[in-house]
């Protein structure tokens, strides 16, 4: 059953190979969801903000890896 364990590990690894990077993405998504849910203007501004935050996370995540 080693192959099954390998497949399961690979499947989880599809989404998370760096916990800090994945956490930053999920936290930003939660922040945008809260913005839309709890403010009157949230749904109009959350789209561009969602993109901007993810772009920053992407670049910072790549830079962090490049420094290691």
């Amino acid at each position: 059953m080693k192959w099954l364990k390998t497949i399961l590990e690979e499947t989880i690894g599809l989404f998370v190979d760096d916990a800090a990077y994945a956490a930053a993405i999920v936290i930003w998504l939660a922040a945008m969801a809260a913005l839309v849910r709890f403010t009157a203007f949230g749904s109009a501004v959350a789209g561009p903000l969602l993109f901007a935050g993810l772009a920053v996370i992407l670049v910072l995540g790549a830079v962090r890896k490049a420094r290691k």
Binding site: F15, D18, A22, I57, L58
Partner: peptide, 15 residues
């Protein structure tokens, strides 16, 4: 899930 997957791929591709 797609975003986690896509951003993981994209960061690797950048690197």
């Amino acid at each position: 899930l797609l975003l986690l997957f896509g951003m993981r791929w994209l960061r690797k591709a950048i690197l």
